[in-house]
Design a protein around this nucleic acid. Structure first.
Lengths: 110, 110
DNA sequence: TTCCTGCTTGGTTAAATTGCCAAACAGGAA
DNA sequence: TTCCTGTTTGGCAATTTAACCAAGCAGGAA
């Protein structure tokens, strides 16, 4: 792999890696609806607040969200909502998987 | 987080995780052009063939590719080409990042 | 049968990720 | 000032991931 290509793929992988966690996907989906502070997100995710804070810093580090402190809360906002379009495709993969499983099961049952 | 939601997000995260590696992104992009055998992909990636084989099994396990043995080669095929549409969005995030960096640099230079 | 080619799997090591607790920290209220 | 609330950071242990080498395995050729 050429070096120029390598850093391109690394940059892309970094963003995917940041998204590739159940709690972070939940956070992304919620932030797509409206901005939220750490407290609110913590209640939704159901982990320790320090864990959620770290998830948010992963998302921020990847450029997926921005944060802003107002009064005594830190509000997080999704930076690119197109991120969620992708979920449709992920669902397609999952559906295709399910279809295959069905076929395999059928062929076993015969 | 409810249990039903949890397994949904876990399923999605699994697919993203499978994609979230530079070599695997390269493989996905190449397989989007045409099917390839392990040997060919190994040459493109530039790692040990066992490493590439393991990357392919990660992709296969996530339902992103299928494999078929013909003559003495195992050919891998991309299962959902929509996967790559997502890259456009990833690029948008990267572009937004770059824009921000520029702004920060400018404000420092002032 | 034995050899060779293409690929996968096992083993090992190093590095990264995750989650919690505890501690620190910032800013407003008392 | 001290306290309280919201958030981040440090530290640690458990788990996962990644890469290589070596060994194994399947199938065709000799």
């Amino acid at each position: 792999m050429k070096n120029t290509d390598k850093s391109l793929y690394e940059a892309r992988a970094k963003i995917l890696k940041a998204m590739a966690h159940p709690s972070r996907l939940l956070i992304i989906e919620e932030l797509n609806k409206t901005e939220r502070c750490v407290n609110e997100l913590t209640a939704m995710v159901g982990s320790d607040i320090s864990t959620v804070s770290k998830h948010l810093s992963v998302l921020k580090n990847a450029g997926l969200v921005t944060d802003e402190k107002r009064s005594n809360c830190v509000y997080y906002t999704l930076r690119c909502s197109c991120i969620l379009d992708f979920i449709d495709c992920v669902e397609e993969v999952l559906a295709a998987d399910a279809e295959d499983h069905k076929k395999i099961l059928k062929s076993i049952m015969k």
